[in-house]
Design a protein around this nucleic acid. Structure first.
Lengths: 247, 247
DNA sequence: ACTTTTTCTTACCCGCGGGTAACATATCGG
DNA sequence: CCGATATGTTACCCGCGGGTAAGAAAAAGT
């Protein structure tokens, strides 16, 4: 995007625009650095317990310097939240661009969303309290949430239509799935037992196939598999075999 | 003085301090009245945005009076939380007392827990931030949460053993289910579209049976619903309906 | 009645932390 | 080298709200 304009003859550095551009870039990078530091602290300690001094300190600057990039604390919070929202939006547009049954799309969404919940900006989507935002920003956030929720419902409803999903209430089903996913943002920790991929893989299966044996395979005797060791550590690590070949 | 029918937002359980009568209620009842008022405000506005003056005002007393019953704001929060925890505990002991397969117990738990999430004290279990508690109380709360989570896992693991639940990772499955349930505490509202019973009923089914029709090999009783055409998921068509485009 | 104890009020303290003003310094265009 | 514009610092303000001190007003005991 930064095509250098025709370099002027003499020895001077070519474009006067480049400095401007790079300066803006530098600014944006700093802005983002603030957000990264802030989101981390907010998640770690909770918005209200984090002071702007702490945020600044972690960046080796002082509090008033933050006001060069943001109008106030609540705007920082909102921008963190927005970063997460943008990630989700891009996931959705990509899925929408592709094809597949309602169930297939839902699975893609579940998988990507689960992985997102294991990131800082993703988690901020569900761990920040919208009541800390200005009424204006809270409205934007609510609208975004609504769009996301609508997407879940749309995929489910579509899946019911095309027969890939059994008949059920799309609204409640979406709540259930989104709830399970959102909760990841509350318990996941980087140094935990499960990797984001493992979580995403397992949730994709569990949330669409359920638990009960009833009515599915298990036609063969119910031989007690794994008499003792349920959950052999890392049990489900390998490629997920979604039962009888999904899709 | 002004006639003092202090008509605060009606619909609230009248406080024991109302003008001049019933000032001789038992201490414990007053304590609980404080908790009921507090939990409502905390859920409504968020812990940090609620002042003790507001809590007191809603009870027709003044802030320092609260200190006759609690050591401080954080203790009020903790006691609210504990109320919810006790409710869950009693549910669990009751289920443990009864019998049934792992799946049956899990379903009972899901049903009762879902209903609990639609109550104030139940929701406080998942909407309050344990970091607002003293280290001591936070420890108690973490332990209680752990016990609850362990119960979910125990039922699931038991169900795998007795064959009522298909093999899976009990830990992640418990996270998924508990997450879906906990999230109820975030979106449920009394005047909403669904009653607690409806939610509990639907979640019990959805969380244990899954969504996918997964045609293929179903044969045992209970022909799966979904009379729709069985469209093998393969996307032979570029674009499914995906609903009517809008919602 | 009288003390004693519990409950509640009035009046205050004070630390925390978001936000601002005024000033210093670096950067850049020219 | 010189203004103009970003960028950052030091020092301060001040409102909010949790918590407390001291004492009034009921209740309860005797």
């Amino acid at each position: 995007m930064d095509s250098a304009p025709p370099a002027p003859p003499s020895s001077l550095p070519p474009s006067p625009w480049l400095p401007f551009e790079s300066r803006r870039r530098a600014r944006d990078e700093k802005r983002e650095a603030v957000l990264r530091a802030a989101v981390q602290l907010f998640l770690e300690q909770g918005y209200h317990r984090v002071t702007l001094n702490e945020v600044a300190e972690r960046l080796n600057i002082t509090k008033p310097a933050l006001y060069n990039y943001f109008r106030g604390k609540d705007e920082i919070l909102f921008e963190c939240w927005s970063m997460g929202a943008e990630l989700v939006d891009s996931v959705i547009t990509e899925i929408n661009a592709g094809g597949g049954s309602g169930l297939a799309k839902l699975r893609k969404l579940v998988h990507a969303y689960a992985a997102l919940m294991a990131t800082d900006f993703g988690a901020s989507l569900v761990r920040f309290d919208l009541r800390d935002l200005t009424e204006r920003n809270a409205g934007v956030a609510r609208a975004a949430k609504k769009r996301i929720d609508a997407t879940f419902r749309k995929y489910i409803a579509g899946g019911i239509d095309d027969g890939s999903i059994r008949s059920c209430d799309p609204k409640l089903a979406a709540f259930a799935i989104a709830g399970a996913l959102n909760w990841i943002g509350h318990w996941y920790q980087r140094d935990g037992e499960f990797s984001p991929t493992e979580i995403a893989d397992e949730f994709t299966v569990r949330l669409t196939e359920g638990l009960a044996t009833e009515g599915r395979q298990q036609m063969t005797k119910k031989t007690p598999r794994a008499p003792q060791r349920r959950n052999s550590g890392r049990a489900t690590t390998g490629k997920k075999r979604t039962g009888g070949g999904t899709r």
